[in-house]
Structure formats: C-alpha cells, structure tokens
C-alpha cells in the first residue's frame, strides 16, 4: 500500500505536466475543430462541421498523400543509410567510435532552420554546386536543384538521418557481433548473417529509429517551405498557413487532428510490436 502511494506521488509531477501540456491542448484542438471561425481570427461560438467539410477540398487529400509519401520515403532512405553506419559504429572500438558518433551529433549544435537555409545557398540556381554540375555536363541548363520535391526529400533525409543513426547505433552497440561469426560458421554468407541475425538482433532499435524519423517527418513544414516549390507543400505548411495567414484556427485544428491521427498509426504499430517483443523476450 505504502509503495503504491509512493509510486503515485513520484509519478504525479510527470502526469500533471502531460495533462496540462499534452492532454488538455489536444482536447482543446479537437474541440476547436468543431467551432466556427470568427472573422477577427479567433474562435467563434457554437458548433459546426464547417472545418471538417473543408477537408473535402480536393487539395487536401493530395497534400496529405504527399506528406505521407515523402515521410515514408524519407524513413526508408534514412534507415537504409543508417543501418550500415550503425553496423560499423557498433563494431568499432575506442577513439574512432567517439569521433564518428560526434560527427553524427555535431550538426545539432547549429539551429535547424539555419541548417535548412544553408541548403538553399548550396543548392541555389546561381550557386556553386549547380554551376559546377552544369559545366561538367552532369545536369542540363534547365535542371533546378532547389524548389522541387527532390530538394525537399534530400533535406529531409539530411535532417532526420541522425535520428535514425543514434537509436540504431545504441542497439548495435549492445549487439553481440560474435553471433555473426556463429551464423557464418553455420553456413550463412556475410549478407545472410546480417539479414537473419543482425537485423532481428537490433529490431527494437529499428522500430525506435522508424518512429523517430517518420513522426517528425510527417510534421515537417520548415523544409518544404524553404527548399520546396509551390507544388511541394506538406500538411505542416497548410497548418501554418491556416494559423498564421488566414487566421482560421478551426481549419488549422482540423488539419492538426488529421495529422495527429496519421501520426498515431505508426506509433501504435511500434508500441504493439515492442510490447510483443517484451512478452516474448529476445
């Protein structure tokens, strides 16, 4: 009984924090999505489905689909790049390992918006990179490196790659690499050993990496805003426009709830996969 009480006291601050800053705002957001917009940019009285009906606008499904597609592709590319990096990092010892992990972390020391803005300079039509590629004949005169979906995807991969590397590295560090020798001893080629033993061995890190890339990627809005073209908007941009531009808060809330629902799906999947693993321990 006393232990129960202690536990309750210990969890109370966290619980309170979550209720105040997560549960209450989320509920408020859902509530606002059913309110009318007031002409002064606030939330009006009464109840309406206007904001939800506006989702029928043929633009939204296209943007939602683009958001999901870009985020999934980003996640797949990030995981594919991070896996070999984590594999090597986990196997390394001592000084070099520390240096390489630092290299992964160092970009965080610069503000995220500044890093994305830096890409604008790098990829700028008059920038050195594009001009060099044109003079080398690798790209044509009419090819742009900036303001298109390719640029958005590349900067998204650049931004979220560390979030894939770090959990995978943490898992690889705990992985017993002698298991790969055991697999080869039993007849597995190097590649088969990795797919049948290494990847299942770091599966929890893989799930974490997936969630850590996919969820923020779904909410991206700075990246498409800065390096994307007008046709590369993601749902985050629309939410920002509705909030800051049109001052239509119910509409912004509706889009946010839609995004929240989309984000919940991968989270629930990760949660259940993790729990299954815990009840059948590895």
């Amino acid at each position: 009984m006393i232990r129960r009480k202690n536990e309750a006291i210990l969890t109370a601050p966290t619980l309170l924090w979550l209720i105040l800053f997560f549960v209450v705002p989320s509920i408020a957001m859902v509530v606002i999505s059913f309110r009318p917009a007031s002409i002064y940019g606030g939330v009006g009285e009464g109840w309406t489905l206007d904001a939800w009906r506006a989702l029928g606008n043929p633009n939204y499904p296209v943007i939602l689909w683009r958001t999901v597609r870009l985020s999934l592709v980003t996640t797949v590319i990030c995981l594919a790049l991070a896996l070999p990096i984590a594999f090597v990092l986990g196997r390394m010892q001592g000084k070099w390992r520390t240096i390489l992990v630092m290299i992964v972390i160092v970009p965080f020391w610069t503000n995220f918006v500044i890093r994305v803005a830096a890409w604008r300079i790098l990829l700028h039509p008059e920038g050195m990179l594009r001009q060099s590629l044109i003079s080398l004949g690798i790209i044509g005169n009419d090819t742009l490196l900036l303001y298109n979906e390719g640029a958005v995807l590349m900067v998204m991969v650049y931004t979220y790659l560390p979030f894939a590397i770090l959990p995978l590295y943490a898992a690889a560090e705990r992985f017993d690499y002698s298991l790969l020798e055991a697999a080869r001893d039993l007849g597995a080629s190097g590649f088969t050993a990795v797919t049948r033993v290494f990847i299942p061995g770091i599966s929890r890190g893989l799930l974490t990496a997936m969630a850590l890339v996919l969820i923020p990627a779904l909410g991206s809005y700075v990246i498409p805003d800065l390096v994307g073209g007008p046709g590369d908007e993601m749902i985050g941009n629309k939410i920002a426009q509705r909030t800051l531009g049109d001052r239509n808060l119910p509409q912004a809330a509706t889009l946010s709830v839609a995004l929240l629902l989309i984000t919940l799906i991968p989270m629930i999947v990760v949660y259940y996969l993790n729990r299954r693993e815990r009840t059948h321990p590895a």
Binding site: S178, E181, A182, R184, S189, P200
Partner: peptide, 20 residues
C-alpha cells in the same frame, strides 16, 4: 574457403545462440 563453406562447425565459448 570462407567459413560458411567449410565442413566444420564451432561450439562457441559464450554459446553465441541467436537470442531471437
């Protein structure tokens, strides 16, 4: 001959059983 093609098998000191 690479290890996977050798007609020998090893019992490792730490057993190296696949945990999954």
């Amino acid at each position: 001959i690479p290890p996977e093609k050798r007609p020998v098998n090893t019992v490792f000191q730490n057993y190296a059983l696949f945990p999954h």
